[in-house]
Design a protein around this nucleic acid. Sequence first.
DNA 1: TATAAGCGCAACTAGGAGGTTGCGTTATGG
DNA 2: CCATAACGCAACCTCCTAGTTGCGCTTATA
Lengths: 112, 112
Amino acid sequence: MSNPEPSPPSTHPAPVFAALGDATRLELVARLGDGQAHSIAQLTDGLSLTRQGVTKHLRVLEQAGLVKSSRVGRENQFSFAPEPIKLARSYLDTVAEQWDSALSRLKAFVEA
Amino acid sequence: MSNPEPSPPSTHPAPVFAALGDATRLELVARLGDGQAHSIAQLTDGLSLTRQGVTKHLRVLEQAGLVKSSRVGRENQFSFAPEPIKLARSYLDTVAEQWDSALSRLKAFVEA
DNA sequence: TATAAGCGCAACTAGGAGGTTGCGTTATGG
DNA sequence: CCATAACGCAACCTCCTAGTTGCGCTTATA
């Protein structure tokens, strides 16, 4: 770990959605949403998969920019990073807005 | 098609995110966001993959509830369905809010 | 009534995702 | 200084995904 392609901020939301498209990773994100840093062992606890499995998920989250890691002592501390969440949210906002305005245009056309 | 597991509304956002986690499917969603119904052949046009490939993607979107289909004549008309988008958005809002409140609690703690 | 458009189904392939195990390395702590 | 906790790396496995092709069925249309 510690260098799984820091990957530029990536303006494309698909990888972010893909990273969020897994129940285990959503659970990890939820746990990291407490603002605290957690070690891999901590995050593994309670999840029914091995530490290496968790590590792989964290790597995916990190490549999507949703998580940042820093080695402290013998532990690898992971913490949440909110930027991609905002990106994803604004994308969904765009889609919803496009949909709404398309609908009202259609409605106006029908009523005309 | 016509019956690829209508799948109950599904309150879990992971499948929705997974469906959105693909550039081709995001493109399809964007095209369907115009509020119009489009046939598979229409949606295939301009995408560099076969009709069957597009069909598979549409099936994924349909299982996630993001798209609805109805056979009309010899065409299968697909249209956008906004509910899962709202679900995903509210989930992202929850995460962001959890993050913000956790941060302000930490800040208050430090300043105390 | 042929022909063509639009589709569904099934089989197949290559590659990636999720998951495991085994083993070696580096820090902590008694 | 030695045991152990926390990792990283690599190999491996299974299953799903994205994509293709071939074929046959149904619906429009010239």
